[in-house]
Design a protein around this nucleic acid. Structure first.
Length: 317
DNA sequence: AACCAATGCAACCGCCTGAGG
DNA sequence: TCCTCAGGCGGTTGCATTGGT
């Protein structure tokens, strides 16, 4: 905290000793004045000229993460959270790159958000955030839920860059609105010439087009498999279950089911020309996910796991 | 009111990269 | 080509705050 008076080195220490720990108000003021006078960059030199007993690195960090005038403070909006999930699914822990698309947000802040919120929830679910299962949950559960939440509060969206907000009748239009609401302004070099480090469809697209494309791809594969009920089925998850068994559709089955202790499968047996229902041990099934997952067409799963999925809403607060 | 655990976040650390000599 | 240094990045730590008992 800038107002903290705590110092890790006492005033009686050697004057040449570099200071560490929280910045004081005086140091902040000194740094701001120094940057106003000398400009950003050449941080070691700036640190010396300013008289601050801090490293150049420390000065740079303090400026970029805290003192810079355009640093946005306060909770991340739902739209920003959605964007973080989307971009992280593409780029992984490239925090500074992700931060480029959230004006006013720092890589440090985004990183902290990911670690404290997202990773925490993943830990509760016993899922590695680097796993495909986690990616599926993000894409097929959290992002749709976030979209629903944003849609639910769309009247309050701080839309600034659109005089005529788009109708919210489908996901892609919604995404566009969400992106606008998040005040996404892609770095010029990205929008103009694409990012050479990013392959495939992202080339030449600005971030608005990209996130819409992403979502359309996602929602198309999500909806196409005859069950347009998938979305509504998933949304049932948000309601507190009265039964220990809850509907589990194909899309999320292979990932969410991993946390279940028992799964009731309701599948069609071609040979017998009949439906059969059986309760099986989920742990056994998922040891061999390739063979059995597809038969679980209408599956119901019990578990604390799904209960913990209800609690995902904590994530978006 | 006091204590403790959990949480959030600012700051630091170590490594990597690229520029300049 | 090698070396040095500054800047940038992702990972980690430590502490103040908050919430629960």
């Amino acid at each position: 905290m800038s107002t903290s008076s705590k110092s890790t080195t006492s005033s009686s220490d050697d004057d040449n000793e570099l200071r560490r720990g929280p910045w004081t108000l005086e140091e902040d003021t000194l740094l701001i004045h120094s940057i106003a006078h000398h400009g950003e960059g050449r941080w070691n030199l700036l640190a010396k000229r300013s008289g601050l007993r801090r490293t150049g690195k420390s000065c740079r960090l303090r400026w970029l993460n805290y003192l810079k005038p355009d640093v946005k403070r306060g909770n991340l909006t739902l739209e920003e959270q959605l964007l973080i999930l989307d971009l992280h699914s593409k780029w992984g822990n490239r925090w500074s790159r992700i931060a480029q698309y959230l004006p006013g947000r720092t890589d440090n802040e985004i990183k902290n958000y990911w670690r404290t919120r997202v990773q925490k929830q993943a830990k509760h679910l016993n899922i590695d955030t680097k796993s495909a299962a986690f990616q599926d949950i993000v894409r097929y559960y959290w992002m749709p839920r976030l979209l629903q939440k944003i849609e639910g509060s769309s009247t309050a969206l701080p839309i600034q860059n659109s005089e005529t907000p788009l109708p919210l009748d489908n996901a892609s239009q919604y995404s566009a609105t969400a992106v606008q609401a998040a005040q996404i302004s892609p770095p010029p070099q990205f929008a103009m010439q694409g990012d050479p480090n990013v392959s495939g469809t992202i080339q030449g697209l600005n971030i608005q087009e990209q996130i819409i494309t992403d979502w359309e791809n996602c929602s198309t594969s999500f909806m196409n498999s005859s069950e347009s009920k998938k979305m509504s089925q998933i949304s049932q998850f948000s309601e507190c279950p009265t039964s220990p068994f809850q509907p589990l559709d194909n899309t999320v089955y292979s990932t969410l089911g991993k946390g279940c202790s028992n799964v009731i499968t309701n599948s069609y047996d071609n040979a017998m020309d009949t439906y059969k229902e059986e309760t099986i041990s989920a742990s056994g099934m998922f040891e061999n996910p390739v063979g059995d997952c597809h038969v679980a067409h209408n599956s119901w799963a019990d578990s604390d796991f799904l209960s913990s999925m209800w609690n995902m809403d904590q994530l978006w607060q």
